[in-house]
Amino acid sequence: MKLEVRNLSFSFRCREVLRDVSFSAERGEFLSVVGPNGAGKSTLFRCILGIYSDYTGRIAVDGDEIRSLSRRQLADRIAYIPQIHRPTFGYSVLDTVLMGTTHHLSPFTQPKARQITQAEQAMEWLGVAHLANRNFAHLSGGEQQLVLVARAIAQQADILVMDEPTSALDYGNQLRVLQRVRQLADKGYTVLLSTHNPQHALTFSHRVLALSDGRVAAWGKADQALTEELIQLLYQVKVDFLETEEGRIIVPRKGVGLS
């Protein structure tokens, strides 16, 4: 599905958080959203998820403005994968994933064989099927994040919105989760993922959207949009780009930006 954002502006308590943001993401595209803390990444995602609806401009999924869609219709198209956090009540992994199927059910019914098949498929895709009976709260961070991705897959929406999914993970799990996400994009999902690590954006995503102070600082192909100048602008640090066999690597300069 195609996600299109046109001239999006949003103010929160009289402060303009997003200003004139425009971009789009095609089917099968992995779009990384980068920018410093407070640049408006989370706010942008909340607008796309329909949490904030008093924005100006247009957010459209396959041509339909999302404000005209009901909660259920929106859940049919866009799934959200939050940062992992300690849940108040730990559910089994199966139940956690099954929750993603809720919008297929009428309010008074419980998941049936069809939903369970859906959840099992999603768990198998993400390689977490063997954890089905475990308590979500007792899993490692990497496993939890994959389970949350599986829940989004069980939701059967084509657009995945991920708010800094790797920020609470160790080095290995960060790469493993991003690898999986890239595979999902290759399978046809549209992925919107915010990250604090420009290297991740460069290595895994097709395109990059850079936000600075609520405005679009750059939007384009990952290897073209991410430049030394952009990183200087976003984070006030000086870096070099090294070409290697494994791709382009971002290396901070010594005594970086501390002056």
């Binding site: 998820l49 949490i51 909660r71 859940a75 959200y80 956090h85 929750m99 809720t102 939701q155």
Partner: peptide, 10 residues
């Protein structure tokens, strides 16, 4: 969380 629950379609 509020955002997760709403994104699930509730």
């Amino acid at each position: 969380e509020e955002e997760e629950a709403r994104a699930i379609g509730v």
